[in-house]
Design a protein around this nucleic acid. Structure first.
Length: 481
RNA sequence: CGAGGUGUAGCGCAGUUUGGUAGCGCGUUUGGUUCGGGACCAAAAGGUCGCAGGUUCGAAUCCUGUCACCUCGACCA
């Protein structure tokens, strides 16, 4: 047994350091997360990948409910006239809308957009539903898929159709809407850090980067292992932009007709891409325990021997009773070594080996995926031991990612330093004008932008990544996905 | 849409320069021995060489066209 060493296995995935893109593609295909669909720019999410999404939905939904939101479902098709109502919004989305032009064999009188996002539908209904200040706020969320005809696509990061959640709320006052916008940004941040183990920066985006039709857009950005920024969630404050376009008005306590203030916020399956590109290593995935479809895999060793399988099944039942997601790999068609490597590639956080020697000693041999550390856990009370190991793995993943990001975050006082830093990671710098920022990131700096002064005063803590205008003057710059 | 690259067995590739029987590794199937870090032996199956034309006695190989995918830009969650 075991003539081939692990080096040989590792070479099956393109080394991360050599070609990060190829590594990403290798990992998602070889770990059974997705397959390429034979449909333009779309992917098939396989059971293991979809399992992650289900857990994300569960965790997020609980947070939405806790902040007073309810789930709804709106149609996938949007009449063109509805989409055209808010000028800035149309302009922003027009290049990437897919249209339905025929019903059966008949050409439609009005073409229907396949939703790229549902602001217009929500607005249309809100206009009917709202009469009085008593009806406000309305805080709805929907889980669905949307379609955007992207020019180039990559699984999870950018596909034509993608799964997401979109929250849409309307409020009586500007203050309330702003509070909602920031609250949901905080919900996202807390979720990213505490559930996905993704350290993120949150902040406001620049006018050029903001959502089409929004007064203000906020986002959370994570650093991938190639130093690029990935937007993992975004919230928008529309003010009364859409309310005015769609006539969403209510009668206030004072008897005045007022426009509502609206927000929207969304996160998508892209978060799965963020997990992969943040936590993955040379062996493949490292799933953050709280969204790992399989948290513990039990590998019976020498399972043909008497009593081993029975004990393994009992162990599985015990761990499941403790609330853990457990897989028992009792396939006898693969050797133990083969299975070790497969589950490591799939990123299962904890592996429990259970063989005759373990059973004899009353223990299971545990291996944690984050550090490859092996230890013996007493079978007696093993549920708690595994749970605390999972918590520890979560924290290790978070701290590793944070240390990586911090080490690649530079401070720049001039354009040269900014340009240089952006090649490797994030750059913290004072706001120096939108044109100059973009130029720096895209290596197309010209003389006029280069001469714009860096403002060294005022360094607020809430800042944003990727060419965003912060609430104050400090911001982060990075190449973005 | 601009620039570059790749299409040969399920997967990864060689063969193309200089035209001459379609190859290799992994995987798969069958039988046996194994089983605590991708086991070994033996046998077998599997390909209209992306597609369409052309040149030629003969094309994976040369010519023309076309399609798909990948990387980098532009656009975006």
């Amino acid at each position: 047994m075991g003539k081939k060493d692990n080096q040989e296995f590792v070479t099956q995935i393109t080394p991360r350091s050599e070609d990060f893109s190829q590594w990403y593609t290798d990992v998602i295909l070889k770990t059974d997360l997705v397959d390429y669909a034979d449909v333009r720019g779309c992917m098939v999410i396989k059971p293991y990948g979809y399992g992650i999404w289900e857990l994300i939905q569960q965790e997020m939904d609980a947070r939405f409910k806790a902040t007073g939101h309810k789930n709804v479902y709106f149609p996938m098709l949007i009449p063109e006239s509805l989409l055209l109502k808010e000028a800035e919004h149309v302009e922003g989305f027009a290049p990437e809308v897919a249209w339905v032009t025929h019903g059966g064999n008949e050409k439609l009188q009005e073409r229907l957009a396949i939703r790229p996002t549902s602001e217009t539908l929500f607005c249309n209904m809100y206009a009917k539903w709202v009469q009085s200040w008593r009806d406000l706020p309305m805080k709805y969320n929907q889980w669905c898929s949307v379609m955007r005809w992207e020019k180039s696509t990559r699984p999870f990061l950018r596909t034509s159709e993608f799964l997401w959640q979109e929250g849409h709320t309307i409020h009586a006052t500007a203050e309330e809407a702003q509070e909602e916008t920031l609250q949901m940004l905080e919900v996202y941040r807390e979720f990213a850090e505490n559930v996905l183990a993704l350290p993120v920066y949150v902040g406001q985006k620049s006018d050029k980067e903001k959502f089409a039709g929004a007064r203000a857009t906020y986002s959370m950005e994570a650093m991938m292992q190639d130093g690029k920024a990935l937007q993992a969630g975004t919230t928008h404050n529309f003010g009364t932009n859409f309310a005015e376009a769609f006539g969403i008005q209510y009668l206030s306590k004072e008897g005045q007709l007022e426009f509502v203030h609206e927000t929207s916020w969304g996160t998508s399956t892209r978060m799965i891409g963020a997990i992969i590109m943040t936590h993955g290593d040379e062996r493949g995935l490292r799933m953050p325990p709280r969204v790992a479809p399989i948290q513990v895999v039990i590998l019976p060793i020498a399972q043909h021997k008497e009593g081993v399988l029975e004990r393994a099944r009992a162990l599985k039942a015990e761990l499941e009773a403790a609330g853990l997601r457990v897989e028992l790999d009792d396939r006898d068609t693969y050797s133990a070594g083969w299975k070790f490597n497969e589950w490591e590639m799939k990123g299962v956080p904890v592996r429990l080996e259970l063989g005759p020697r373990d059973i004899e000693a009353g223990v299971a041999t545990a291996m944690r995926r984050d550090t490859f550390e092996k230890s013996q856990l007493a079978l007696d009370g093993i549920g708690d031991a595994v749970k605390s190991m999972l918590d520890s793995i979560h924290h290790t993943l978070f701290e590793q990612a944070k240390a990586f990001r911090d080490a690649k975050t530079y401070t720049a006082a001039d354009m040269d330093a900014l340009e240089k830093g952006v090649q490797d990671g994030f750059v913290k710098a004072s706001w120096c004008g939108e044109r100059a920022c973009e130029d720096a990131i895209k290596e197309k700096t010209n003389a006029s932008s280069r001469n714009m002064p860096f403002d060294q005063s005022g360094m607020p803590s809430d800042v944003c990544v990727c060419c965003g205008k912060p609430a104050g003057k400090l911001m982060y710059f990075a190449k973005a996905y």
